[in-house]
């Protein structure tokens, strides 16, 4: 589904990604771990096509297409979803209005008919219930005054409504209480299917207890330093990242 080859990317002329390779098949869940500042969010931003992140070499193939040739919104409509590490607020724009506009954009791209107002409301209510998010949140401004954990749950709400092919979760587990972590993990597991793939960026192996990944990668210095199974995360938890660097050196 996704094939990243020798990816180099700069931010404000500073090289951040330096020859990253990664391949993900449909149906798989990959976890990406790595020290602060190693380039995890940069990778997510490059995948989503954010302005200011310049790809200087390499390629990204997504569902057989050149992902880098698509604009941000085209990638989104083609099923690339990014759950933000720091979700922003859009004051005055209700969550409901935002979700509806976004669902319409994605559905019309897929050639699916728009949902009626009633159908949409039902779907939005049911999904918030699934995430134990009070339906009142649908009426509030997008992330406006939401707590950290509420913002993260709101990202997952959007993900479940949009049903993306490739979901990239950037530290969605950070700042969640134990119960919320379970709820979010249930949401992610609900999305898991043979047609979809999920990338989870995380610092804590705890999330991986709930959403068991097919592979774990360590990103450091703009590259995938090591890949392995579930047990790699446990090893990292015990030993930190230093030994990997020493190994590599």
């Amino acid at each position: 589904m996704l094939k990243i080859t020798n990816l180099h990317a700069t931010v404000a002329d500073t090289p951040i990604l330096k020859g990253l390779n990664l391949e993900i098949n449909a149906g798989e869940v990959h976890a990406i771990m790595g020290p602060n500042g190693s380039g995890k969010s940069t990778l997510a931003a490059v995948l989503a096509g954010r302005d200011g992140y310049e790809v200087t070499a390499g390629s990204i193939e997504y569902l057989g297409r050149d992902l880098l040739a698509l604009a941000v919104e085209e990638r989104a409509r083609a099923g690339v979803f990014l759950a933000f590490q720091y979700p922003v607020e859009i004051p005055g724009v209700s969550n409901m209005e935002f979700l509806r506009a976004s669902l319409e954009a994605v559905r019309s791209h897929r050639g699916e008919p728009n949902l009626s107002a009633v159908e949409f409301m039902k779907l939005a209510r049911a999904t918030s219930a699934q995430l134990q998010l009070d339906p009142e949140f649908l009426k509030r401004g997008v992330n406006e005054g939401f707590s950290g954990g509420e913002k993260k749950r709101n990202e997952i709400l959007q993900m479940l409504l949009l049903q993306p092919n490739l979901a990239i979760l950037d530290e969605t587990d950070s700042g969640l209480d134990i119960d919320a972590l379970q709820v979010v993990a249930d949401g992610v597991n609900a999305l898991r299917s043979p047609e979809r793939a999920i990338i989870m960026v995380t610092h804590y192996q705890r999330l991986l207890d709930y959403v068991v990944p097919d592979q774990v990668h360590v990103l450091a210095d703009g590259r995938i330093l090591r890949s392995g199974g579930r047990e790699l995360a446990l090893e990292l938890e015990a030993k930190g990242y230093g030994w990997l660097r020493d190994d590599a050196a």
Binding site: V72, E73, G92, V93, L162
Partner: peptide, 30 residues
């Protein structure tokens, strides 16, 4: 109108025009 807000809207599939008008409308809602 932040790059962040615009990026969020576009990442959710909205075209940039729709995104700006939505952000501005939200600002004026009161």
């Amino acid at each position: 109108v932040g790059d962040d807000q615009l990026f969020l809207c576009r990442q959710r599939g909205l075209d940039p025009e729709k995104a700006v008008s939505m952000i501005v409308n939200g600002f004026c809602k009161q």
